[in-house]
Design a protein around this nucleic acid. Structure first.
Lengths: 237, 237
DNA sequence: CCGCCTTAGTGTTCAGTACACACTATATTA
DNA sequence: TAATATAGTGTGTACTGAACACTAAGGCGG
């Protein structure tokens, strides 16, 4: 980037101050399970906050990009590759880690609904899913990070097509609507929902049906090739 | 944050890998000048990219928050305090700085239109404003950063009230409309613009007038106490 | 096998907002 | 005082959002 050093020496400053912050990557992993929006947490095996729940994360390796580090963490806890991942925010309060200065670049991931066997990483004693509205006490500023991720997810859900990332490849319109209702925390109108989503041409009917308790439902798949244009309602004309 | 170390030792990992990235903060500073949207660039005094233009930035001090570091950079180049500042994105490609691994946490700032005397910091040979649509070759990945900041600014302009940060305390409706037109790069309808903005109650008439070539215009000020609610046009009902 | 239960699927009306569009008002200046 | 320049104002039309209830199709139990 640029290189004004911490100490304002008058020599060409080619290195930063000796003591610089550590850089960690933490990932808020969302999934719809049991009809609720849940996040994956790991139980810390070592101090600080030993025994507390935390979002998965770790230090970034010297030769990997930030996103690669986030994907590595994701893979270590869940085994999944190729899921939706987006940078969220970088948290850097000097006192956010009691041991030392740590900058945390946070990401959020969306996993498609379905069964995933989570595994605790080396430094975790356990790994579990928790509903976002029923979280245990968390380590560091991780609650703040999850709240922020949730705000962003809800926001993006309303004006982008990111919500499809929470569903498996094939789904019914009712399942899609449920996913939206679960994340947004409000009921949606069935006819308006279906009309609008079908008009958007973002779904393709697969031709298959899913049998269930009542009338079988048509199955659809997400057309990632259709670039969805959603205009924000403009503040000014 | 969390502390999986780079090396997967089996001991309690209380420190990150010895070698960790440096953390820099870079700030894209926007201002409307001479009827165009401009950014402040500094000319690098030292390698790498010696003599090239770059956005102002530097390494974060060990005991200051990221935002404090950004405000410090801003103050060093422009002398301003208390202006709009928002975290943009964190860039971390391993090869983005040829010297070493550097993570750049970027911010963007909006300065109110008016005269500002910019000063080159210690490690800069010069500091100048450049129109965003006429940038010189830039150091590092700074062009990408500016493009990203511009996208975000235009986007936020349409659905938040962030645009007022580009205007001085008192302004006419025509000046406000011009600011929007300059940033968005398109013409807006005068009557629709005025109706919508006055309906929003976000402006207060100061009672003063600004004389000029034609009929004097009423002066307004921004009411930061009015929380502006702008709903995005929802993808789904 | 048929009636009941359960979920899927479908249109219309009303209200609010977006957008297009042209003239009058008030000051300065020649 | 006439010309020029900018400020300020209202209406009609088209579209989009929101509210709302019934029919269709399959499964299951009597």
């Amino acid at each position: 980037m640029s290189e004004r050093p911490s100490s304002s020496s008058s020599n060409p400053p080619n290195t930063p101050s000796q003591e610089h912050p550590a850089v960690a990557v933490d990932v808020v992993i969302f999934m719809i399970r049991e009809g609720r929006l849940q996040v994956l947490l790991v139980k810390r095996r070592y101090p600080p906050f030993e025994g507390r729940w935390a979002i998965p994360g770790g230090f970034v390796h010297i030769d990997e990009s930030l996103e690669d580090a986030a994907r590595r963490e994701l893979r270590e806890e869940t085994g999944v590759e190729d899921v939706y991942l987006e940078q969220l925010y970088t948290f850097g309060r000097p006192d956010r880690d009691p041991r030392m200065r740590v900058i945390s670049v946070t990401y959020f991931a969306l996993l498609p609904a379905g069964e995933i066997d989570v595994r605790a990483g080396d430094d975790a004693a356990d790994a579990r899913w928790f509903p976002v509205d029923d979280l245990p006490p968390l380590a560091f500023d991780h609650r703040e990070i999850i709240e922020y991720a949730l705000t962003r997810l809800r926001y993006k859900l309303e004006y982008t097509d990111v919500g499809f990332q929470l569903l498996p490849a094939e789904f019914t319109l009712t399942e899609l609507q449920r996913a939206y209702e679960i994340v947004l925390g409000e009921q949606l109108d069935k006819r308006n929902f279906r009309r609008k989503i079908l008009q958007s041409r973002i779904l393709r009917e697969t031709g298959r049906l899913r049998a269930g308790e009542g009338r079988p439902a048509r199955l659809y798949e997400y057309r990632s090739d259709v670039r969805l244009q959603v205009k924000a309602r403009r503040l000014f004309p």
